[in-house]
Design a protein around this nucleic acid. Structure first.
Lengths: 213, 213
DNA sequence: CGTGAAATTGACTAAGTTCAATGGCGGTGG
DNA sequence: CCACCGCCATTGAACTTAGTCAATTTCACG
């Protein structure tokens, strides 16, 4: 992607507005594992994710990554830090190769702040984030590891075919060992079965769902 | 408070808009411990906190309250559930007696949705919430209990004079026993001292700060 | 004083992580 | 064709953090 008007977020903006936006922004590409910003970096740039999968996570004092969310195009990233002028509260790293539009927030504020369409997009984006964070809190602080795994199986069982258990464990913020023990437990209890190709079959939906509701 | 125009959020709205808003909203008062809404309730009402201290918390399967935030006037409450049409993700309970303005969200959307001033207020409110939630995640998932207590002492030492340790423990989402043990540990290490009137003196700021940074 | 709430302390428990050892399986090169 | 290598999964045991439970002490305040 190399044109602002191709970004759904801005697709119904006027030509003039797009021109103005072009002057204060540019596209930047990243390889897999490329860091867009680190937790603690100073704000100032508003990002629009245009290509690739971008993981947001925090790092604890021991160096463990606390997974928060993976974003796919299109969406705003970093608007909290920009609006509140606080350091980015998490790190953003590409999982795949990808691309962002980097917008100078100071200049955006001067030019665009009252643009009603953008306001609406910002509201949508913030709402999405509140929901994501609310969900993180629910998952990480209310659910036990067993409940997290149960919920993940019900909601994302297909991902077991494409992801390794270590990757799933990292999304669930548990260790691979804990995931393995819980899966073994579920298999022994005949709640699930796993075939040779890592496909998870749910044998007892009711019991499984009862673990996290 | 009994007039919409006294609410700072709406104070610069036109007379007509205020009249329209009055038709779809009403004030409701609560005693201390009054519940505004429960986690899991269906959405539909947008609240404006006009008086009192309102605590937002989630409840885990064991019945423990997970403290998220205490709001003071004036602020929007419940906008996520309304915008996303999902059940309220947390319970809101008054700590003191208080009052809210209850607004019928369906009707608000029809009348007001594009009102630019309200858009801005909503953005501010959502930004505040993202910040709060981001903070909750940081405090609860990145910091240890010891780090939480250290941070609380540095940032809110004066609250030890007015709150009981049980209340502080509940704000920090730890048990009173854990708080007591940590304070004892800090006292023994000569990091803090506590005088007869529950006033906390920080003796070793550097060590204390190093525990959570 | 006396009484009831709050704080402290110790022993135990629960949940999950860490560390280490082992086992399995697929791809590669001879 | 098969032996080897490396990665991932599995399993057990010890450890860590904080919560739970119960007993005791302290304290504020009438």
């Amino acid at each position: 992607m190399d044109k602002i008007k191709e970004i759904p977020l801005f697709s119904n903006m006027s030509e003039d507005s797009i021109k103005a936006l072009e002057k204060i922004s540019y596209f930047k590409s990243y390889d897999a594992d490329g860091i867009v910003f680190y937790e603690g970096d100073d704000p100032g740039t508003l990002y629009v994710l245009t290509e690739g999968v971008l993981r947001l996570y925090k790092t604890d004092p021991k160096g463990n990554e606390l997974y928060i969310h993976q974003f796919v195009p299109t969406g705003l990233i970093g608007e909290l830090a920009c609006f509140e002028n606080i350091k980015y509260p998490a790190t953003a790293r590409f999982i795949t190769k990808g691309q962002v539009l980097k917008i100078d927030f100071q200049k955006l504020q001067e030019d665009f702040f009252k643009h009603p369409d953008i306001s609406m997009e910002i509201i949508k984006s913030l709402t999405k984030k509140v929901k994501i964070l609310s969900n993180v809190i629910h998952k990480e602080m209310i659910l036990t590891s067993e409940a997290k795994v149960a919920k993940f199986i019900v909601e994302n069982s297909e991902l077991f075919e494409t992801l390794k258990n270590t990757q799933i464990a990292s999304i669930l913020n548990i260790t691979p060992e804990t995931l393995s023990r819980i899966l073994t437990k579920f298999k022994k209890a005949a709640i699930i079965s796993i075939d040779k190709h890592h496909h998870v079959n749910i044998l007892d939906d009711i019991t499984l769902s009862s673990l996290f509701e």
